[in-house]
Amino acid sequence: MTAAGRKNLPKQLSSAIDPGDVVFLRVSDKLITARFISSGVGALIFLALTAVPLVLKLTGVWAGYPAWLAWAAPAVVVIVMIWEMILIPRQVRAIGYAERDDDLLIRSGILFHRVMVVPYGRMQYVDVTMGPLERMLGLSTIHLHTASPGTNALLNGLPAPEAARLREQLSARGEAKLAGL
């Protein structure tokens, strides 16, 4: 556990299917901001689209449009948006990873919960990506690929230095433990 000194160790949401004796590291809380922004922008665009009939009705251009529908559509969007916003911090806090001797553990999700173990010796390559929003917040995404298309090992919201460290660590361990297919 090389990064065990990091301060965001505890306060992990625990769940029934996590392996018991493992301490997961959490990803950066800035990912909450990033997800707020990205899903907020998407939701605002959607809200603007669904609000068009309401605007048309209020300005009298399309007076015949049923009032309940004009109000209901944006209202539903707003409710879903708020619900998503409430979920985001919990979802981000649910993402965790742990480096063990032989493999990397990744967990995610609360309601739809998933735990995955990726052996270092099975990694074919590691992708580190950084979108514009992530770059602004100093975050990176790391994606592990094995020979299996089913391995969907994606870690969002790692601080850039931690992502670089993890990448080096994974490559080094992968090389040391590399096995054939």
Partner: peptide
């Protein structure tokens, strides 16, 4: 065992209520 690529456990809300879990083993395509 030597061809195991990676492993996963999955659980949805209904399965959580019933105390169940899906185990998946990733093989090559």
């Amino acid at each position: 065992h030597e061809h195991t690529q990676s492993l996963g456990l999955r659980q949805g809300p209904l399965m959580a209520a019933l105390g169940l879990v899906d185990f998946e083993l990733h093989s090559t395509a």
